[in-house]
Nucleic acid binder design. Structure first.
Lengths: 144, 144
DNA sequence: CGATCATATGATACTTAGTCTCATCTTTTA
DNA sequence: TAAAAGATGAGACTAAGTATCATATGATCG
C-alpha cells in the first residue's frame, strides 16, 4: 500500500450529487485544483486555464465552496487563498514561506469551542481559525 | 465608580509614541473610531468624515493596525471589519445579527496553541481566530 | 434522432477594498 | 522665518469578486 492519504471527497461527484452539470469547463477547473498542494488564488486558476472564462472559474469555485469540498482561507494580510478539502471538519496551517496548506483536526479545538461557548455571552454560530507557520520542509531547507 | 471597562491604550498617544504627528485628520479618525462599538468598515469612516480624504483614512487605519491598537477581522464571507483593541492579546467574537464586536482572552486558547504547536510539522508564527455568534442581546431581543 | 428548454458559459461592466502617485499643504526645527 | 520632513487629498490604479446578458451546451422527451 502506497503512502495512503485520508480519503478526499471527489469534487466532481459532489457537484453532480448536488444536481449541477459536470461540464467541460468545470472538469478543467476541478482537474487543475486537484493537482494543487499549495494554497492558490482564483486568478492563478484563470491564468492557468486561459480557455475557461474568469466568471466560470469564480462560479465553479463558489459551487465547490458551498459544497464544502473547497476551503477559502485568509493570509495574515487578509489575502484570500483556496485549498481543496481533504477531510471533513478541519482547520488550516499555511506556510508563510512556501505557501503549502495543511489541514488538521485536533480534539483540543473541539473542547476549546465548548469551553469558550460557556464563556461567551451568546451562541456560537461559526468560527474561523488559521495557523500561520513555517513548515518543517522550509525550516530544514538550506537558505536559498 | 461607573461601569469600569478594561484599560484601552489611547490610539493618539500610541501614534505619537511611534513618532507620527498627531494631525487634524488623524485626530478626527481616532475620535470617530473611539466611539464605535460595532465592527466598522473603512468606507463607513470615509462616509462619516467627508472632510478627510479616503487615502488618509486608509493610511491612518494602517498606522493603527501596525501599532496594534486597531484590529482587522474577517466576517464569515471574508468581508473585512475593524474594531479598536481594548486589551493586549485577544480574539474576537462578531455578532452576525447586530455586528457588535467582542474581545476575549481565554487561557484555554493559549494552552491550545501550545498543544497544537506540538502537533504541527513546523513552527507557528501567527494565527487568526474569530468566533461568529448571536450575542445575548440579540438572542433576547424580541424579533423585529 | 432531433427539437426544446433549462442550464452554463464568456465577454464585459461594475463593485468593493485598498494602494500608489504626486502636487500641495502643514509642521517641525534650525 | 526658511528649509526640510512629513502629511494630505484628488484621483488613477489594482485585486478580488459579482452582475448582466446574449450565446452555447447538453439533458430529456417525443
Amino acid at each position: 500500500m502506497i503512502a495512503s492519504r485520508p480519503a478526499r471527497p471527489d469534487p466532481a461527484s459532489v457537484l453532480e450529487d448536488r444536481g449541477y452539470r459536470l461540464t467541460g469547463p468545470r472538469r478543467s477547473v476541478i482537474r487543475l485544483l486537484d493537482r494543487k498542494e499549495e494554497g492558490f488564488s482564483a486568478e492563478d486558476i484563470c491564468e492557468e486555464l486561459p480557455g475557461v472564462g474568469r466568471a466560470t472559474v469564480y462560479r465553479t469555485i463558489r459551487l465547490l465552496l458551498d459544497a464544502g469540498v473547497l476551503c477559502k482561507l485568509a493570509l495574515p494580510d487578509g489575502a484570500p487563498k483556496y485549498s481543496l478539502a481533504r477531510v471533513e471538519h478541519h482547520h488550516h496551517t499555511f506556510c508563510v514561506t512556501c505557501g503549502n496548506v495543511g489541514e488538521f483536526r485536533d480534539t483540543t479545538i473541539e473542547r476549546l469551542l465548548r469551553t469558550i461557548g460557556a464563556d461567551i455571552a451568546g451562541e456560537i454560530v461559526g468560527h474561523r481559525m488559521e495557523f500561520y507557520i513555517v513548515c518543517r520542509a522550509c525550516l530544514e531547507a538550506p537558505e536559498r
